[in-house]
Structures are given as structure tokens and as C-alpha cells.
Nucleic acid binder design. Structure first.
Lengths: 209, 209, 209, 209
DNA sequence: CATGAATGAGGGTTCATTCAT
DNA sequence: GATGAATGAACCCTCATTCAT
């Protein structure tokens, strides 16, 4: 080995290679979603991607590089969907925002578990994790800005909002309840919080109960 | 050994043993809080408890028995605190309830990560996991009952409330913000949701924005 | 891994792998022959096969699968040799049969200990153990049929004969005596028993001394 | 530790201690009979003897000392029974000898498994194993002497006879057949061999078929 | 480049043995 | 002397990673 160790996936030039990377990422998303980072094995990911373990390692030199790539890919989709929501309408009502967020959550539900598995748990991925979190908080801030007018410091609310969104992501783990009822409740909760944020922003102070 | 495998920790008979069990549980709480169930190792838990690995296994015959014991201990404290809150005052206002919940969360913050690590992630502990979840949801339901009068079906709200509490548990992972600001925001969020629940319960229908 | 655990050794695809499997089986035969199933360690077997422990487990996923493979391999050779003896001559005399059995025992003496260690002792191997025993008893029955004419029920004799053969297998553990003398005595013992079986079979009743 | 390590059980002076040793030996006989030497655990033996593990180690400082003691105790009974058979009658017929041996085997059947587990398998006990074997072979030789007259060299036959006896000990492991039929066959086999020995001894040469 | 066999550190667990109480 | 908690070497097995083919 004379070349320095790579810390990011190799970008394959040929179509064949790009397909394979795609298959690997899809398989990895599934497997990381089903188990924790540690319980997921490179062998199983390779098998689900119908790839030899050696090929997997050609593109993703270590397990955490693969996890970071999965997170980056997932994060990109999530950020993109949030951008669409923010840019959709200059006058976004709290109710629209709440429904928009739930819609995003539902569309990404397949990949949902990945974030729960990778973003939270103690694994320190090479880069992705902190970066994605900051980007997500940024989007939440933009969303809050759309609701009121003044661009004041709203960091706490953005963080809180991100956690609420994550809580809703985690909801379907409760198999006890029918999903529609739960979803309706989720929208209500989001709307309440966004309305509050919009109101206090307009008036410039906390609203009394 | 031909005796059937124990599924619960051994009750030590001497004082020395009880101290050791205590040390092990504390160490396990820390380690399970820092890493996922799989990433946590029995060796590290033993080391942090200043115990030989064999001693750990004398009291907790398998890793999941240990995890269940940790969860049970944590769960008991949490449930007890919630009971106190519910029973404290027959006329609990949403604001009081919100502040009470945050207070509980803060007092249990040390053990906080354990629930995030063990309760959610896919590990099926011998008994604890489902039982504790149901008990917690039950407490949330009681809390909601205290706010309004009618004992109608409020399962979705109890589940939602539990997830909100868990979201607040997870908050301090964001080292970016000062905690007091974050806590104030958390109380606000809880209060909004509890007020909504109380109002819709009194009127028997959803409140319009 | 989520795939169900294999219960049979993996068939290697390359020559290198086949050699290694061979080396492992040979080493396992030796070690299981020297110690009991429990006392034999996978680490020692790997070392004697000049293989890493991981390689051993690639082909034989558990210790009992390995033991079963050893037994199957040994059993196949033994059954084959017995078939040859039975089919060799339509009119087999007791003396020929006795000498034939001893010859088989001597040719398989290298692998001898394995059957003593694995076949008897309480370990219930995945499949091999009961199957092999029945097959061996069947062969003994065929041998007995060759000696007389009537195909009457001779199960006890087949079982007894198998145990006599096993006893002779065990003989060389007595290092005290020269082997030729011991072997001669063994042939005599077998011949006496086979003659008795042949005689009582012809006459249809036990022969008096 | 200033005293040299003991290699034999401590002889207890008081009644209490003698009872305890007795209970331990009984428990050990059972456990060693059920499993191989390695699979049997000191903890289980102590539990079955209703003794603390520490007490067990007070009398038997290591596992192999305990095993040797068990073997010695078992061997003493076996040797005693053989002596009775040999001394019973100055003119012992082969048939009587055969039936006497089977009778001994049956009476000791409870402890039978111990010899199979301890005597054969590779464990080198501190002393017992070789000594007992030699004593047993000696008794077999005496038995053979009783049948004929001349005290010529009959070592091979004694060894062979011991192995036949061991083969019969092992018989009940075949659960497939009713024991009485199997026992009858065993007596026949022993009688045939003893008759042969008596005859060749009297005539001074091998008998032709 | 692709493949999958090879490697070995490390994880959960057991158990003979010791020793403080 | 009795008790049983403590100890740690050793066991079976897994899996990230490497490398010969």
C-alpha cells in the first residue's frame, strides 16, 4: 500500500460501477434501518446488494465510510424535500407547514429508520453526522422564518422543531395504534407549536396561555 | 450445569454483594447510555464497575438480563416520579403538568441516555421493554385525565406525549445551545400540547386555530 | 447476519479450499480421537490444521457440525469396507468373516478413536450419530445373514457384534501387550461368536456346548 | 501457601465430615456418569451433594482428585465382586463364570457409566486409572485360571475378557432392543469365549473349529 | 477489477479454583 | 471449618478487513 487511505467512497467512472454503488447504498440503507450500526454486518449488506464483499470494500473502504455515505444520501433527500416545502409558498400558514412536514416524514418513511439508527447512536461517523444536523437545523430555522416576519434568533425553536420531527419519525414503532389516528395527532402537535412560534414572532414576546 | 438458565439477576445475600450489584448497575447504565446495546461490552461494564467479568456474570447471567435490569431500575424511578406528579394536585393545570414533566426529565437526566439506547432500539429484552412502555403510556394517560374531566379515549395523545417527553430527553445531545433556553422552549412545547388536550377534552371536539 | 444458521459444512469452490477442508477434517479426526468432544477445542483443531480459527468456522459453522462431518466421513469409510466384506463371497465362513472384520479394524485404526469418542459419548450430533449406528447394525446383520441361510430376526446378535467390533477397536489402548498376540485373540473371539451364530441359525435353535 | 499441594482427599476425622465425603462421592458418581469428565462441573456436583463448593474443595482439592476418588471407590466394589466370584467355587464352569460376570455387571449398572466416562476418555487421573486397570486384568486372569488348570501365560485372554466385559457394560446404550434379549446374548458371548479358553487351556493348544 | 477465502482481534460466556468473611 | 462471592484464563464464535487468485 503506497497510496494514502481514502476516507470517502471512490467515484466509479463506468456505468457498471455506478449501478453497483447504488445497489450497495440501497442495501445498506435497508440493513442499517433494521439493526443498529454495530449489528449490521458488511457481509449481509454485500449479500443484499448481490455483490461480493470485496467489491463493497472497493467503493467503501470502511464500515463507517459506508454509513456516512448512507447518511449523506438520506440527508440530501431530506434537505431537498425541506427546501421544496420552504420555497413552495411565500406565505406559509402553520397548518400548511405542519402538514408539509408530516408529508415529508411519510414519504421518507422507508428510509426513516436509518436516521434513527445512525444519526442518534453514539457512532461518530467520519464527517456526515454533525454537518447534516446543522443543515437540518438551518432548514427548520428557514421554515420558522417563513411563518412570521422578523428574522430574530430562533435557534432554540429550530432545534426543538427538529426533535419534534424526529419524534414523529419514531412514532410508527408503536404498533399499538392505527397510524391514521397517530398521524392526525402528529399534525396537530406540529401545528400547535408552529402557531405558537408564528404568534410570538409577530408580537415579539411570549404569548400567555 | 444442567439447571435451567436464570432469566433474572441473582439476589446477593451479603452486603458486599449488594454493593457490587449496585456498582454494576451504575456502570451498565453509563455504558448502555453511551453506546448502543450491541456496542456496549460486558468487559467494559465490568471494568467500569471495578469488577472481574466473572462477578458480573454471577449476578447477571446474560447481557440482556443485565440490560433488562437496568431498564427496570430506570423505569421504576421514572414511573414513581410520574405517579407523584399525577397524585400531587387534583386540579393540575397544563402549565404545572408541563413544568412537572420537565422537572422529572431533569432530575433523571443522568440516566436519560439509557432509555434512548435500550427502550427504542430493536433489542427485545426478556421482559422489561414492552411492559415499561405500556406503563409509561398509562401514566401519560392519567396525566391527561387530570387536566380535563371526561375519561374518554385518549390513547393517541398519551403515545404522542410519551414521544414528546422522549424528544426532550434527547435534547441535551445538542451541545450547541445553552440548556436554560432549551428547557424553557421545552416547557412551552409541552404546555401547548397539554393545553390543547385539556381544551379539546372539555369541549369534546378539536379546537380551531 | 439474518440468514438461518447452516447445519452442514460449506462446500468450498476452489482447490485451495478443498485442501483446507481436508486438512481440517484430518486434524479434527486426530483431536476428537485424543480427547472427548468437550475437551477438544476448536482452537487446537485449527492450529493442527495450520489454519486460522476463522477459516475453520467458514467451512464448519459450529463445533457439532464439524464433529458430525468427521463422523460421517469416518462412517462412510467403515460402511464401505463392510460392504466389500459382505459382498466379497457368497459363501462366507465364520473364520473368513472374523478375519475380514479384524482386517477392516486394522486398516481404519488411525481413525479408530473418533468413533469411540464421538459415537458413544452423549453428544447428540446434528444428524450423523443415530444414522451411522443404524447403518452399522444393518451391515452386521447382513454379515450374519451371509453365514447362515435363514433370514430370521437377529437384531440382538447384530448389536452384540457391533459392540464386539468396537471392543476390538478399543484394544490397542492397552499398550501392555504386543499387538500381534492381541489381534490373534481378537480373531478367535470374533470367530467363536460368528460360528455360534451360524450354527444356531442353521439348526434354528441355540446349540448346547 | 506454605504446605505442599495435596494429591489425595483429606480424610475427615469426624462423622459429619465422613457423611459429607460420602454425599460428594455419590453425587460425583452420578454426574460423571451423566456427562463426560469435562462437561461435569464441580458446581453441579456440590449442588447435588447439598454442599457448598468450598466444602467440596476442602476434601477434594482438584477435579481430577475427585474423579480419581470416584474411580477408586467404583473400582473397589468391582474388584470385590470379582473376588467373590472367583472364590465362590473351586470348580467354576464357563457357564457359571459367564453368568456371574453378567450378574456383577447388572448389579453395578448404576455406576456403570462412570467407568465409561472416566476410565476410557483421555483424562489422566492422578493415580487410579492405571492401577485399577491392572487390578481388573489380574482378576480376569484369576477367573481364567479357575476354569482350567495350568497357570500358563494368559495375559491376552485376560485383556480380551476385560474388554468384553466393558462392551457389555456399554450395551444398554442401545435403547433399541429389550434388555433381557440383549443380556441373554451377552451371556452366550461370554460363555463361548470362556469355554474356548478353558478348552485350549486343558488341551494346551488352540482348538480347531 | 472482481471474487471470496483467510485472518485474528474481540465479544459473550463458563467454570475450576481461591479466599475473605 | 463452612460458605459462597470473586477471579480470570480459556472457550466458542463473529465479523471487519485484507489479499491471493
Amino acid at each position: 500500500m503506497s497510496s494514502p487511505p481514502r476516507s470517502s467512497p471512490l467515484a466509479p467512472k463506468r456505468q457498471r460501477g455506478r449501478d453497483r454503488v447504488e445497489a450497495i447504498l440501497t442495501a445498506a440503507t435497508t440493513v442499517f434501518g433494521e439493526k443498529s450500526y454495530e449489528a449490521a454486518t458488511m457481509t449481509e449488506i454485500a449479500a443484499r446488494a448481490s455483490t461480493a464483499i470485496g467489491s463493497l470494500y472497493r467503493f467503501f473502504p470502511t464500515k463507517d465510510v459506508l454509513a456516512a455515505a448512507v447518511l449523506e444520501r438520506y440527508g440530501a433527500r431530506l434537505l431537498h424535500a425541506l427546501d421544496e416545502l420552504v420555497d413552495r409558498d411565500p406565505t406559509l400558514s402553520p397548518r400548511d407547514a405542519a402538514e408539509g412536514l408530516l408529508d415529508i416524514i411519510q414519504r421518507l418513511r422507508t428510509e426513516r429508520s436509518v436516521v434513527l439508527s445512525l444519526l442518534d447512536s453514539g457512532v461518530t461517523l467520519p464527517d456526515g453526522t454533525g454537518t447534516l444536523r446543522k443543515a437540518l437545523i438551518g432548514r427548520m430555522g428557514q421554515l420558522l422564518s417563513r411563518l412570521g416576519g422578523s428574522p430574530g434568533p430562533h435557534d432554540e425553536r429550530a432545534v426543538m422543531l427538529l426533535h419534534l420531527v424526529k419524534a414523529i419519525f419514531a412514532l410508527p414503532q408503536d404498533h399499538s395504534l392505527p397510524r391514521p389516528a397517530q398521524d392526525k395527532e402528529a399534525v396537530t402537535m406540529l401545528r400547535l407549536y408552529l402557531e405558537h412560534a408564528a404568534a410570538s414572532r409577530r408580537s415579539g414576546s411570549e404569548v400567555a396561555p
